[in-house]
Simulated scan of single mutants.
Amino acid sequence: MKVFLLKCLNAINSKENINNLSRIKSTVDDKDVIKIKPILDDCDAILIGAGCGLLYSAGLTYFGKRFEENFADFIEKYNMSDMYLGGYYPFDTEEEKWAYWSRHILINRYNKKVGKPYIDLLNLVKDKDYFVINTNANRQFQLAGFSQDKIFDPQGNYGLFQCKKACQDKLYDNEKIIKEMVKSEKDCKIPTHLVPKCPKCGGEMEVNIRRNNYFVQDNGWYESEKRYKKFIRDNRDRKIVFLELGVSITTPAIIKYPFWKMTEEFENAYYICINKGEGHIPREIEKKSIYVNSDIGDFLDRIKIFQS
C-alpha cells in the first residue's frame, strides 16, 4: 500500500505526469452520463465518499455571500475571511468563542433544510446495497433520509459537545444550549453562565469535530466504523463502485487514497469521481475509472434524465 500511495503522490505533484492522470471534461457531458449509468445499474454495491464539494453543491458554502450575510459583525470585529478559518480564530475569551461557534453550528446544523443534491443522490442509490463515508459534520445525509446504519462520519458532528481534553469518551447533545447561546448573544459574546463545562472534570468543552489528538470517538463512532469495514469486506469480490463526490486532494487520506487503493486491489471495482475543477486518477486504475469535471448537483440532475 505504501508504494501505491507514493505513486499517487508523485502522480499528483509531478508536472510531467499531470496530463496522464485523468480524462478532464469541463461540463456535464452526456457521454459520461451514458457511460456511468449502466455501471451504477449493473453494480452490486456502491460506496459513497462525500467531501466538502457535495456540501457546497447544496449551497452550504462557508465563504462568500452566505458567510457575509450571517457573520457581518464577526467579520467587522475580527476580520474573518470565512467560516472554516473562523473556527480556528484565537478568541480571547470563551464567551467570544462560543458566540461564534453557536452561530456557526446553528446555521450549519440546525437552521437549514436538506440540500437537493443529497435527495437526488438517495434516489439514485436507494435500491442498491450502499454505504456512505462522509467527512462533513452537517448531517445532511441523515436529513435526506439515508439510513443512519449506512453512514460513517469519521470527522465528527456539529450537534455534539465533548470534553476539550477528552477526559471521557462521552458526547453530549448540544441543540438546546446552542439555541440559548444564539438567543442570548450580544456584541459577539454570550453570557458567562452559558459557557459549556465538562460535567466530569469541569474543564472546557469543544465541538466534536476532528481538530487535534483530543477528538473523542465514542462507542457510536466505533460501531459505525465496524459497519463501514464490514461493508467493504462483504463486497470486495462483488461489483462495487467507489463513488467519490467532492473530495479535495488537500485531505485525501480518509476517502480518496483508500478508494484508489481498493479500486486497484478489487478485481470487480470501479472508481467514479465527480468533482468540479479538481480530479485526479492514477494511471494504475485509469482503465477502471472515470472523472467528471462537474458540479455534483448538475450531474445528479442530468443522470435523472437517463433513469428508466
Rank of each mutant, 00 (worst) to 15 (best):
E278C: 10
D149Q: 12
K25G: 14
T135D: 02
G277W: 08
I274D: 02
K229P: 02
N157D: 14
Y172P: 07
F4Y: 12
L55F: 01
E223N: 13
K15Q: 13
L5C: 13
D149P: 01
Y118I: 05
L124C: 05
S14A: 10
N275E: 03
V241M: 03
A253L: 11
N212G: 11
Y222M: 10
D82P: 06
C201V: 01
G156Y: 08
L106E: 12
M80E: 08
S102V: 08
S57K: 10
L85S: 15
K7S: 15
G279A: 13
N219R: 06
K2M: 03
M1H: 09
A45E: 10
E180M: 10
E68A: 14
Q140Y: 08
N10S: 12
T135H: 04
D92I: 01
F74M: 04
D32P: 00
I39L: 14
G145D: 01
F259Q: 04
E96Q: 12
L121E: 12
F299R: 00
A72C: 06
S22A: 15
Y271D: 15
L106C: 05
N20T: 07
K97C: 02
F4G: 14
K176A: 14
G159I: 09
C198W: 04
P154R: 03
T192G: 08
N70H: 08
C8L: 05
I177F: 04
G53T: 07
E204G: 09
I190D: 00
S102E: 10
K256A: 15
D153P: 00
F242A: 13
A144L: 08
K288N: 13
D234V: 14
D42F: 03
R109E: 12
L106W: 00
D187E: 15
S294H: 04
T250C: 12
S102G: 15
F91H: 04
I119D: 06
I290M: 09
E244W: 00
K25S: 14
I281Q: 05
I232D: 08
E175N: 11
L245Y: 10
E265L: 11
